[in-house]
């Protein structure tokens, strides 16, 4: 069975380490916050100006002056801090954020990523994505392996306008965990019940199956 979005988030959560400052993008990445291992200190950064983001509020705690980057109402944990957008991107660009998790429309075998624009359709903007991918080596892309048409999102080269060049080295999809190096997607872990043949059929870019291929723990 391929992973669902919760399974992808759960797998990515295994990459968290005690003391990490983490920026989670909108969509599947946001779900990673639900699987932070108990007893581990992970501090969430929201690029609109909050470190130490907590869960959604209960109705009585809702504060219109406290939102996340997806414009959702949130809370602050003890020890939270607030800052301007310039300071926020100093944290990001300056390499102070330990891990970034974000979604993508396409990832290429050379580490290029596209996730902000589909020509001919409405362009919503890149928000903070271009800053995030340009700023750290520790980025994990969380996405489904194919688009709604069933086409692979792991490509020889991106076809959509780029968000960043040569910046992605890890991808977790519903089918597997890949490292990108030497111009190829290296399949390190496979989702339970998924076959290598299915992975091959759904990977348009160059694929290398690890000799030590493991089955993902679910």
């Amino acid at each position: 069975m391929p992973l669902d979005k919760f399974g992808i988030a759960k797998r990515i959560a295994k990459e968290l380490r005690d003391g990490y400052y983490v920026n989670l993008g909108i969509g599947i990445p946001t779900l990673v916050a639900n699987y932070i291992p108990a007893g581990m200190d992970v501090i969430l950064q929201s690029e609109n100006g909050l470190l130490g983001m907590g869960p959604f509020p209960v109705e009585s705690e809702v504060d219109p002056d406290l939102i996340n980057a997806g414009k959702q109402t949130v809370t602050m944990l003890k020890g939270a801090s607030l800052f301007s957008s310039a300071d926020s991107f100093a944290m990001i660009r300056g390499g102070h954020v330990d891990l970034t998790v974000l979604g993508a429309m396409e990832v290429a075998e050379n580490g290029d990523i596209a996730n902000w624009k589909i020509p001919g359709k409405m362009v919503k903007g890149m928000g903070g994505a271009m800053d995030l991918v340009a700023s750290t080596d520790n980025i994990i892309v969380a996405m489904m392996q194919t688009n709604p048409k069933g086409e692979s999102k792991l490509l020889p080269a991106c076809t959509l306008p780029l968000t960043g060049k040569h910046c992605i080295n890890r991808v977790v999809t519903d089918l597997g965990y890949y490292e990108i190096k030497d111009g190829a997607f290296h399949l390190i872990e496979i989702a339970p019940g998924v076959t290598v043949d299915e992975i091959k059929a759904k990977t348009a870019g160059k694929l290398v199956v690890s000799e030590n291929l493991k089955v993902m723990e679910s």
């Binding site: 690029e47 362009v123 890149m126």
Partner: peptide, 21 residues
């Protein structure tokens, strides 16, 4: 935007913040 009445320049959020700073 689609009808051409409005012009838009999209900038990365951190670049926008830093250009203003």
């Amino acid at each position: 935007l689609l009808s051409g009445e409005l012009e838009v320049e999209l900038l990365p959020q951190g670049t926008l913040a830093e250009r203003i700073r």
